[in-house]
């Protein structure tokens, strides 16, 4: 039972990262109805920038500066690259995402090289003990940031006029323009915010693994799953989706091994390979039952 609780708790923590990546994807989807497959690689690049900055300044300052720089990169990308394919079929958006993926992966690799870099953890020291369950300090930090960001984004989209205008731009750009919303700026803002959130995710992931040009690859995949699971247009949904993916992965990782040996179908060399398959399978099942995701707005059209 203890293993179970511990696995759930650690799943929640890993899942928080997926949740933050999912938030970034939701952010872009909310403002442009597009998926940015390059999101993870851009996040990695901004994490490298943070790493460089932190060689010369304290963590907090480097963190904030990296977020600001990431915002700028996102806004410039939208204006310079995304705008070219804005009114084109969805497939060109996908291609641009893949292009960004390759471009930023190469940029990171060419500047910083393939070798792992050590990324600082802001909170060091022993794990915290909460009612018999131990939680690493970094995990707790991660979880806190995920909660804070999802609450902020929820409030932003729901209660501020700029958040509302961003959603309107995504839903019907011409309609939003007729409401006086400068939709061009909104798209820039959406990309800037998403890239900033991506940078946060990268800086949180890096200390858990190591900082390399490819570190976000699987994180983005599971972040994507989390976003879809959460319903694409819901900030809290993104984080909850992330947590579900994280917990499922962990539990499957522990118990699939027992299960397979009980079934006598042979031994498993690496249960982690299975856990990802099973986790993704579960997501597909959820989506088959609820296509709008767990927290997406239901359609109740008047007929």
């Amino acid at each position: 039972m203890d293993t179970f609780i511990e696995q759930v708790v650690s799943g929640v923590m890993t899942g928080s990262v997926y949740g933050i990546v999912a938030l970034a994807l939701v952010m872009i989807f909310q403002s442009t109805r597009m998926f940015n497959f390059g999101q993870g690689e851009i996040a990695t690049f901004t994490t490298f920038i943070a790493w460089s900055l932190m060689l010369h300044m304290p963590y907090a300052l480097g963190f904030v500066l990296a977020v600001v720089i990431a915002f700028g990169i996102g806004a410039v990308l939208e204006r310079g690259v995304i705008r070219l394919v804005e009114d084109k079929p969805a497939m060109s958006g996908v291609m641009v995402g893949l292009g960004l993926f390759i471009a930023f992966n190469s940029i990171s690799a060419s500047i910083y090289g393939p070798e792992p870099h050590h990324f600082e953890q802001p909170f060091t020291g022993g794990p915290i003990d909460i009612g018999g369950v131990t939680i690493g300090r970094h995990s707790a930090y991660l979880f806190g940031v995920a909660m804070l960001l999802s609450a902020l984004f929820y409030a932003f989209f729901r209660y501020t006029s700029v958040g509302l205008a961003l959603r309107a731009t995504a839903a019907d750009r011409t309609g939003a323009e007729l409401m006086g919303v400068p939709t061009g700026y909104m798209l820039m803002l959406g990309w800037g915010l998403a890239t900033a959130v991506g940078a946060v995710a990268g800086m949180l992931v890096a200390p858990m693994i190591v900082l390399t040009p490819n570190m976000m690859f699987f994180v983005l995949l599971f972040g994507f799953a989390a976003a879809v699971l959460g319903g694409l247009d819901s900030a809290p949904g993104a984080v909850v989706g992330g947590v579900i993916v994280g917990v499922t992965q962990n539990l499957v990782g522990v118990y699939v091994d027992d299960l397979v040996s009980a079934l006598h179908v042979g031994s498993i060399r690496d249960p982690n390979q299975y856990r990802d398959i099973v986790a993704m399978g579960l997501i597909i099942v959820v989506l088959a039952l609820r296509p709008r995701g767990l927290f997406g707005r239901a359609i109740v059209e008047r007929v």
Binding site: S161, L164, A165, R167, A168, A171, A176, M179, G180, V181, R297
Partner: peptide, 13 residues
């Protein structure tokens, strides 16, 4: 997909 009030708030953007 927006509420009536959200539509009105947009009008006042």
């Amino acid at each position: 997909e927006f509420s009536v009030e959200e539509n009105l708030r947009l009008g006042a953007f």
